[in-house]
Amino acid sequence: MAFDEQEFQKTLTYLSDDAPETVLADLEAIRQFDQGQEEHLAREPGGCGWYLLVCFVCFIGAYVTAIIAAGTASSSLEALAVMLLLVSGAAFALMVWNIIRSVKFSRIPVFDLDNRRYELATGLVRLAGADMGADQPLAMQVDFREHTHEDHLQRRGKVGHWNAEFYVDQWLQLEGRLVDGTKFTIRLIEKQQERSRTKRGASGKLKTKEKTKISSEAIVSLKFKGKRYPRAAEQSATIEQYLKLPQWTTLKSVDASGSQLTLRSTTRASWTAGAAEPTEGDSTCDGVQWVAMMLLSLYAMLHASK
């Protein structure tokens, strides 16, 4: 089914069970939609402060000039007063017009999506698609709602003196089958702690401090065909030797049981995906590369298990 923008605006969640090519086309439609939203945001009408100032100053100017003109009976001062009054009126009209535009603007819902989500999803579909049949379905779910959406709230608690809210947002899930018969699942989770604390400062005023801690986790699972990789049980004892992950990530666990491999890693680095903003040197933390290396690590073990 083709991407339905109206439906997407309601749920902000993308769900699909289509061939990789179709999913890529849908993700492109989401990118276009988001760019449209970003352009719309950039056109937000400016503040009305300047118009108000011009209106006020010219009005006072016109008033003062008119009094002086009346006292001196000068016709040129009278003309100046009229002009100032006209400028003041024009500024007032512009101010009102801008206020109307702002109200109209704020009535149109704007969804500024996190670009990383569709960029990473696109990168992963391209990777997986390279080893899938052209018409094999990909089960995909990408949740574009905010981390701090109430559905993601796990609990509230204390961290030292801080009040903390713990959010767990599993925002991406991708499942499919590769041509060697291996089933894969990729999950991306964003964990967030929203901390705040209120205390009385030296002056006696109450002050509230806030901060956010974010951690990302990627989970890659493979369920492979035992007969294709007969030595997998033997190799899984030393699976760690095959793991090669980006330096900015941390291995959390690797689990090999039967014909299933699960690799979990986390990072607190702020990674990017796709043609993101250019960064200097090699400091880019590429999210697609992260998941690619997880898949390649597990496959390195499978290749050694033949």
Partner: peptide, 17 residues
């Protein structure tokens, strides 16, 4: 690969993760 459903990781698998 066409014969099988791509998603036969069980619900329990994903929940536990």
């Amino acid at each position: 690969s066409r014969r099988n459903d791509p998603r036969d990781f069980t619900e329990a698998d994903s929940e536990s993760l």
